[in-house]
Every structure is written in C-alpha cells, then in structure tokens.
C-alpha cells in the first residue's frame, strides 16, 4: 500500500473526554493524512467510539485540540463539523428505520464540495448494487449487512473528504466484511481519508495503512499496519480478548 504524504487532514492533540465525572479519554493524539486509511484498534470499551464522537462533536472534549483541514473544530456543533466535509458512520448503524432507503440517503445529502468526489444515487447504487434493488424498502426491514452499506452510502451523500467509520464489521458475516473492505479501498482510491475503528484485526489488516491502539482511553501504540500485523507481542497485550 502506498504511504500517504503531506500535512494531516485530521489531527487530535491531547484530547481528554469525560462522561459525567468519568474520564474516558486521556491525552489522545492521532492524525490522518490525505488518502490514508488509519485504524483505531482497541478492545470493547477502550474508547474508540468516544474518540470518534469527540471528533464529530457528539460529545465535547474537556481539553485538547482537534483540527480538520487545518481549522480547529472542537467546540463546533456536529452539523457544522459535518458540513466541513467530515462524514460519520456510527457504530450501531443508526439507520432511520421508518424511512425508505432513498429517504435515508436524502437525509445525508449535502451540496457538493470542491475537493471531494461527488456522489449521486446512481453512483452510490453502482458502488452498492444491492441497495439499488431496494430503494423503496424501509430501513427497518433490511438485514444488518444491508444496513451497514446504507449507513456508508448515507454518509457519502454528504460528499465528505474524510470519513469516520466506527466498527463497520461488527456483527457482519465474513463475506459482507470483504465487501466492506472492498468499499473502503474504493473510497481510498477516490482520494478519501478514513479513520476506521475496529476491535478485530481482520478488516483493518485488509485496508489500513497505519494503526493506533487505544486502551483505557490512552493511545498505547502507533505504527504502520504491516508492522503491527507482525508484532505478536503488542497484539497479545492490547487486542486479544
């Protein structure tokens, strides 16, 4: 895989996040560069989702800086962050179950952006052929895999330059995970940058350039995905259950 270069598109520096009085993230720093797929790995409860929610503004970090394309975004509301071109695919999919596939996509639609590929229903249906056949189906009546494709497609409708993908392989059959991997590589090829949170290594080894390991809200390891794949010790320490 090619090494991405240039200034980071997304950068977190020393981020602390609390839920109530419980500190969940401590001094989290990480960066994603253009056209790079970065994995954020960690066990269940390690703080992956909280990191991603801190970026998109669904929770407010107490300390630290988050910048996107050089501009600080911490403190902005999530709709403002999203409109800068940062797409968010949540972990539990959060498909609008009472809306049809087409309507779900409509909710995600945003005006086109200079520096991002533009997505239309047709282009998306080409990427996710099985969604095309069910554009009038209610979101609630779809299988888990179909819902996962729909959430990705819905986020793409916002024409993002960078995507935060929270555990897309969770609960999916292996053949669907392959499909997700193919999609991620497709998007990377179109120039999108991706932060991918995952619990298991399978999907991330297929697609990522670099990886961070988070444990108990702290970044414990940073390196290329290839290095990590070889490093039995680190994997045993932070990732095995």
């Amino acid at each position: 895989m090619t090494e991405a270069t240039g200034a980071p598109v997304l950068e977190l520096t020393g981020v602390d996040t609390f839920y109530g009085r419980a500190q969940i993230l401590s001094e989290v720093s990480l960066e994603v560069r253009r056209s790079e797929v970065v994995a954020l790995l960690g066990r269940n409860g390690a703080g992956k989702s909280t990191t991603i929610k801190s970026i998109i503004g669904l929770v407010r970090p107490a300390k630290g800086e988050i910048s996107f394309e050089g501009k600080p975004i911490q403190g902005l509301e999530s709709f403002q962050i999203s409109r800068l071109g940062l797409g968010y695919v949540p972990e539990d999919r959060r498909v609008f179950t009472s809306l049809t596939v087409a309507e779900n996509l409509e909710v995600g639609r945003q005006p086109r952006r200079e520096n991002a590929p533009e997505w239309t229903h047709d282009k998306l249906f080409a990427l996710f052929p099985n969604l095309a056949a069910m554009s009038d189906r209610l979101g609630g009546l779809m299988s888990g895999g179909e819902q996962q494709m729909l959430t990705i497609a819905r986020t793409l409708m916002g024409n993002p330059t960078t995507i935060l993908l929270d555990e897309p392989s969770e609960g999916l059959a292996p053949v669907i995970v392959e499909q997700v991997a193919k999609t991620i590589l497709d998007l990377k090829a179109q120039g999108l940058s991706i932060l991918l949170s995952e619990q298991n290594l399978h999907l991330s080894t297929l697609v990522s350039d670099r990886a961070y390991i988070i444990e108990k809200g702290r970044i414990r390891y940073e390196g290329s995905m290839a290095e990590l794949a070889e490093n039995e010790e680190i994997r045993a320490a932070y990732l095995m259950v």
């Binding site: 998109i56 503004g57 669904l58 509301e77 999530s78 709709f79 999203s82 409109r83 968010y88 949540p90 959060r94 609008f96 179950t97 009472s98 809306l99 309507e103 779900n104 409509e106 909710v107 995600g108 639609r109 945003q110 819905r154 986020t155 916002g158």
Partner: peptide
C-alpha cells in the same frame, strides 16, 4: 426534503445533526 428530515429527526435527531443538518 424538509418532511423527510423531520421524520428522520423524530427517530434520531443526533444522527441527523451528525449528517450535517
């Protein structure tokens, strides 16, 4: 579109915001 957004927000307004609305 407004109606679609309203129906979506009725279900999960946080998600609607995270999609840029």
């Amino acid at each position: 579109r407004w109606g679609t957004l309203v129906r979506a927000a009725t279900q999960d307004r946080q998600m609607v915001a995270a999609l840029g609305v």
